[in-house]
Design a protein around this nucleic acid. Structure first.
Lengths: 321, 321
DNA sequence: ATGAAAGCGCTAACAT
DNA sequence: ATGTTAGCGCTTTCAT
């Protein structure tokens, strides 16, 4: 290009980037002409090497087919795009090893920042040295992550409000829980469910621990709803599981919400269009995405937890009209 | 690292990449020690600049929240990962301008190959010069793309088989269609629907043209099912729309499949867990993903269309047991 | 078996 | 206002 326009490469650079040094208008015109003619596009890789910034951020989730992560990723992509960054996604398939490998790989690719939805409760421990060298924000974090920036929704509070609604607005006295397979009882949503029942002076309902998936939800739903003393309401810790519970209820010939009320957690689009439409504790996905991107893009993210309040969306499945 | 191990940078490179020149065992050991100690990770960006390959492939879809693309993307990510490549995703939000911009951006980032699900019937026309410089494969292509490699499922044949099943196995004589907003009647699925009805000597059922979304499906479903002379079966051109039709049917107090049979197209996971479970014409997503990645990774992909046969999956929504 | 050095495509400090 | 050049971190040819 420089040769074609009869100038030095420096001038081309000045023109393409508007600076940092001025260029005579007519020279600039000549360069631009050459650029168009030769269809020159700066090699962003070389720019990255030189400038030390790739203008891309990495995202690692545990299940890229889960609608919650899908919608989160889309929101993050949009937020990143608004700030001129591209998004590089990777899926750990809920494997800690893979998670670590992917963080490493992304770091090697010189991403400007890393967003990670870890499968661990103490994700920082798994962080490789390579991972430490790039700004990193934990997303979908259940709580504070020592020494790291993190964003997440208030699972405990949200679940408590959801269960509270089932109890106080609809008079349920046995509220079952479908939650992830973690046996440590550590999930904030489980704590919220427990607290809400305790606060209402009610006994804890039955608990099904199963996979974070539709299939898991079906299994959990069957476990809870098959016996004689089935709960009159079920709170699920994710939309996917709630959808499975719905499916299980239908299979057992139960009416929702007539025979059993169901509430989900996440607020994905799918929850709005199933039948009956699912009442959910909805995470503020767009806000969290913007916050996460904003955080990771400041060179040195403040190391604290950013807690977002989910919102109760009442639809038909809990008995609301 | 080189300094620490007391060797030249060349030797470090030889050790890290096993070659291309031999290194004395003990020197190699010293280098490896230094690598571990200093936690050295090659800057993949610099490697890319030097080697001319980024080991990453780009993917552009029109709606990253659509489960079909989500699952397709996941499969592509897996296939790419199997071949040592990372995936860079971008969402055009069904805008032709954005599509072009993203292709350009990805090309500038020096991706080794580009997978594009275009919103155009003649996608090659929109291709920028930058896009022409990198191996590109059109995915989810409705048909042959002149001068380009492409992969796609047989929409016409699949739809014809689906509609044929509704007609011959369940005796429906009025089969409505919900299809995308394209007014050119160009969608292969629409052609397949038409052909199947004609072949059975049946008149064409009512058609609703609406958005490729759940909401679009609800609107289309309402259009078709509200009146007096409603069809007894509806074929939808996507799972998302079929889910919307299901929703609309419920809203109108109709039983599925009792009052109206519904069939979808895509075969996403969501179709299996809604109620009633959706009968679908399922695209062979994993196979198409592997093929697409394989194609784009050969420097000069053969410029023809790779057609995949979808598979009829019969569940409850069409009236099968 | 190892080291020196060129060069991938770009930017910016320095010279003119 | 423009040209020359060093150097980003790596690989590899060429020389030793």
């Amino acid at each position: 290009v420089a040769r074609y326009a009869g100038v030095s490469t420096a001038v081309v650079s000045y023109v393409v980037n508007n600076g940092p040094r001025p260029v005579a208008p007519e020279t600039a015109a000549r360069v631009r002409e050459a650029v168009n003619l030769l269809n020159y596009r700066p090699n962003q890789n070389a720019q990255a090497l030189r400038r030390g910034t790739t203008e891309m951020i990495g995202l690692v989730t545990s299940d890229s087919e889960n609608p919650f992560f899908t919608e989160f990723a889309a929101a993050i992509g949009a937020a990143a795009g608004d700030r001129g960054r591209a998004l590089m996604m990777a899926d750990s398939h809920a494997s800690g090893d893979a998670e670590r490998r992917l963080v490493d790989d992304l770091a090697r690719r010189q991403v400007d920042g890393l967003l990670v939805a870890s499968i661990w409760a103490r994700p920082d421990l798994t962080l490789s040295a390579a991972g430490r060298s790039v700004p990193l924000v934990w997303i979908d974090a259940p709580g504070e992550v020592p020494n790291h920036a993190s964003v997440g929704a208030d699972g405990r509070g949200g679940a408590a409000r959801g269960v509270g609604h089932l109890v106080h607005a609809h008079g349920h006295r046995t509220v079952g829980l479908v939650v992830g397979p973690d046996r440590a009882n550590a999930d904030p949503r489980e704590r919220g469910w427990r607290e809400a029942l305790r606060a209402a002076g009610l006994p804890l309902g039955p608990v099904a621990r199963c996979d974070w998936s539709r299939r898991g939800g079906v299994e959990g739903g069957r476990q809870l709803l098959e016996g004689e003393n089935r709960p009159t309401a079920v709170f699920a810790s994710s939309d996917l599981q709630a959808l499975g519970v719905l499916h299980a209820a239908y299979q057992l010939g139960l009416d929702v919400p007539g025979d059993v009320a169901v509430m989900g957690f996440d607020g994905t689009q799918e929850s709005e269009y199933c039948w009956p439409a699912l009442s959910v504790v909805a995470q503020p996905i767009p806000e969290m995405a913007v916050a996460a991107v904003g955080l990771v893009l400041q060179a040195d993210p403040s190391k604290d937890h950013h807690l977002f309040q989910p919102q109760l969306i009442l639809r038909r499945s809990c008995g609301c009209p």
